[in-house]
């Protein structure tokens, strides 16, 4: 697979919280060829991003949906459950970005560790769903998480299911980073220290020079760009027009985000790795 140029944007407009505004913005984001739409951002919490992510699931077909989660006002058990449900509703298009703002040092990292442990309590092939034999699942593939960090102690596993992505994509914002060495995506500034992550998206303005971005992408310096939307309805069509050559040919690609964006499949110590597989023809 050729290496994809990743096009990402964030939205934190309070008006996005009502359907009349959100529906056309989601359509515009898909039409612009965006790979990821990050809902909310550091310093701005105009809505509960997890709820909007779930609402956006049936309104979109290929857009990756990323929820900002404030470490100061969330519990990993609830977050792990919500993201598991949303990842099923989107068939593997979910991500999250934990915002450390307002939380004690280390709390955001602890939340990531706890949520991963909760998801890893389930193997990818736990479900059987065999009506004839009456076996719903293979209990040997379910394990307590027994996670214990500095802030969160969680028995687990998550009482939902391992998400289709295994773990929803973890996005780290270089402006408000968390100390996680294996994030999937980092949003980086031109000069700022870059958090370690599998893929690096450069924060640019919508009028950035596309040719030079392509050069830097081809040199392996960046894996894509991230735009901070301030007036999404007006900006998204322009972004689509300017960046169309970068995302062309991928606009209608379906399938889970890890495969599409070339991101690693989460491994687990005790369970079959990867994302949950739901048996068909039950």
């Amino acid at each position: 697979m050729t290496r994809p140029f990743i096009l990402s944007a964030s939205i934190a407009e309070a008006t996005f919280a009502v359907p009349e505004t959100a529906a056309p913005i989601l359509q515009a984001a898909e039409a612009a060829g965006l790979d990821l739409l990050v809902m909310g951002r550091s310093g701005e919490r105009p809505f509960d991003a997890q709820v909007l992510l779930a609402w956006a699931a049936p309104m979109t077909t290929r857009l990756g949906l990323v929820a900002t989660v404030p470490a100061s006002n969330a519990h990993p058990f609830h977050v792990a459950r919500a993201l598991s449900a949303i990842d099923f509703l989107t068939a593997g298009r979910t991500g999250w970005s934990v915002i450390p703002e307002g939380a004690e040092d280390g709390m955001a990292e602890d939340m990531v560790g706890a949520a991963r442990a909760l998801w890893d309590g389930w193997g990818s092939d736990t479900l059987i769903l065999d009506k004839a034999s009456g076996r719903y699942l293979d209990a040997a593939k379910v394990h307590a998480s027994n996670y214990e960090g500095p802030f969160f102690k969680v028995a687990g596993p998550v009482n939902a299911m391992r998400p289709p992505l295994g773990h929803p994509l973890l996005v780290v914002d270089g402006d408000d980073p968390i100390a996680i060495s294996d994030a999937d995506l980092a949003l980086i500034d031109e000069d700022g220290a870059a958090p370690t992550a599998t893929k690096r998206l450069l924060k640019v303005s919508p009028d950035a020079d596309v040719a030079s971005l392509i050069t830097r992408f081809e040199a392996g310096e960046i894996d894509g760009v991230h735009l901070t939307l301030t007036n999404a309805a007006a900006q998204l069509p322009e972004i689509g027009a300017r960046f169309t050559s970068l995302v062309e040919g991928r606009a209608h690609e379906a399938g889970d985000l890890r495969r599409r964006l070339g991101l690693p499949i989460p491994q687990t110590a005790s369970n079959q790795p990867g994302g949950a597989v739901i048996p068909e023809n039950a």
Binding site: Q50, R81, A85, I86, F88, A160
Partner: peptide, 8 residues
């Protein structure tokens, strides 16, 4: 036993 998050 799916208990997916009801709010979502």
């Amino acid at each position: 036993m799916p208990t997916l998050d009801p709010v979502s």
